[in-house]
Write a protein that binds this DNA or RNA. Structure first.
Length: 452
DNA sequence: ACTCCATGTCATCGG
DNA sequence: AGCCGATGACATGGA
């Protein structure tokens, strides 16, 4: 309704108050009735006007029409409404000529309308049309199209709006995968094969104690959702049992390493058997080991890389204190611990980043749905406004066409127009006056008209 | 040969 | 001051 009011104001500069004060969207749809306290008045020029034969079935106004003689020279024709509540409306001081003056009326009356007279209602309707056009332009411009709208409408109809189908949500899928991953990683401790297991778990598994995965898990606190982006090895935990040895195959990151720490057993040549099927078992096991594991073995570190990496600080220091280790060994152990922890941190960081992207994409989808829904609602509102305006126009024609002057003649729509008063009255005023009247002078005009 | 992707690693920052 | 996690940047190797 505010849109309509604004549009009406754009056309009728004299409009100062809401045309309607109704919360009902179909305020004019039920019938053309006025609330009991909204009499329609005519100004003095209609002091002998009558509604003629319209009283019997004219639902807008009751047949109770103030007698011209009763009003005397300053007749204020009161068109008492019936008691219908269909239009519980307070008519403001609105120039009805601007809103209601029907363009068709110009051709239906005997008197010729002035050519300079505007066609306000038609303008309003055109404006509404323009609104829709501009809306559609906007919609198309921003990715909204009727096909999409219809699809969305079906979607909303079936899905009650914006909530995403959790069954289709990557989050739900990924969360289940995440849980399975978690259980997988925790249950794979005996095999030491999870990609979460880190180097220590993979490296010395053949000749050292099993990995304590409870500790390892304690170090990995983040259990993010698995997303569609997660094409990393831990996306499908079930595969981790079969492919752990591939995790570090061929990776030969030797930068930042002191030459003396290079593991002689570490495979350095890219041509050294790319096909695992042709490798000896010892080479196969070697390739399961990370570089740090090779280094640790070369430096004869007496405990697993997994412990080096995952033990709490106190236990780690306690472990170191139990052995007599050279400075090179201690340095390597510290590097192994640092790299191992950072490797886990990097994995978690990447998973977090992917999840963030996924969540943002879902947010974008939600917002796009919101936007599409609002656009469709706007279209519907504009349609409703257009229909209401049409009904108002019809009402205006009907009311105006049934008014009669003292001679029983209809009023010329080119010379007279209906106008709302601030007190809820409706005045019939000369068109020239209606066109030039300023809101500030409205009361004066009313008085002046009454004196006519 | 080249690109893309996953991963490891380092440097750095902030708690 | 040192530890530690987070993260950007870079390197590396596989597909």
């Amino acid at each position: 309704m505010s849109i309509m009011e604004m549009q009406a104001m754009e056309v009728n500069t004299t409009t100062a108050e809401p045309l309607y004060n109704s919360t009902s969207g179909d305020l004019l749809a039920s019938n053309y009735s006025l609330a009991p306290n909204t009499p329609i008045n005519q100004n003095v020029s209609l002091h002998q006007a009558s509604l003629g034969s319209c009283s019997q079935d004219f639902s807008l106004f009751s047949s109770e029409i103030e007698s011209p003689s009763m009003a005397g020279g300053s007749a204020l024709l009161q068109l008492a409404p019936d008691n219908s509540t269909g239009l519980n409306t307070t008519f403001g001081s609105t120039n009805l000529s601007g809103i209601f003056f029907p363009p068709q009326l110009n051709g239906t009356v005997n008197e010729t309308a002035a050519p300079e007279l505007p066609d306000p209602l038609g303008g309003l309707l055109d404006e509404a049309m323009l609104d829709e056009i501009s809306l559609m332009d906007l919609a198309i411009e921003e990715g909204f199209n009727p096909v999409q709208a219809s699809q969305l409408e079906e979607e909303f109809d079936s899905d009650s709006g914006l909530s995403l189908d959790s069954g289709h949500s990557p989050a739900s899928l990924s969360s289940s995968e995440a849980s399975s991953s978690s259980s997988s990683s925790s249950s794979s401790s005996s095999s030491s094969s999870s990609s979460f297991s880190e180097e220590g778990a993979v490296g010395y598994s053949s000749d050292s104690e099993n990995v304590d995965f409870e500790e390892a898990e304690g170090a990995v606190g983040y259990q993010p959702e698995y997303s569609k982006f997660c094409r990393m090895s831990y996306q499908d935990p079930s595969q981790l049992h079969y492919l752990p040895y591939l995790e570090h195959v061929g990776h030969n990151h030797t930068y930042n390493m002191a030459p003396g720490t290079l593991d002689p057993e570490e495979p350095k040549l890219p041509s050294a058997g790319k096909k695992s099927s042709k490798e000896k078992p010892s080479e196969f096991l070697d390739k399961q080991m990370s570089r740090d594991e090779h280094r640790a073995r070369a430096m004869k570190i007496p405990f697993t890389n997994d412990k080096i990496i995952n033990l709490p600080v106190e236990e780690f220091n306690e472990l170191l204190s139990k052995y007599q280790l050279s400075e090179a060994q201690l340095s390597l152990i510290r590097d192994i611990r640092r790299r191992g922890k950072n490797k886990m941190a990097a994995q978690n960081c990447r998973k977090r980043k992917l999840d963030t992207i996924l969540n943002l994409e879902r947010d974008v989808e939600d917002l796009q749905r919101d936007k599409s829904k609002l656009l469709r609602e706007k279209v519907e509102f504009l349609k409703s406004i257009r229909q209401m305006k049409q009904k108002v126009q019809n009402l205006y024609q009907e009311v105006f066409g049934r008014l009669r002057d003292e001679n029983g003649q209809p009023y010329s729509p080119s010379q007279y127009a209906l106008q709302y008063g601030t007190d809820g009255s409706v005045l019939l005023i000369p068109r020239a006056a209606a066109a030039t009247e300023q809101p500030a002078r409205r009361q004066d005009r009313k008085q002046k008209d009454r004196r006519k």
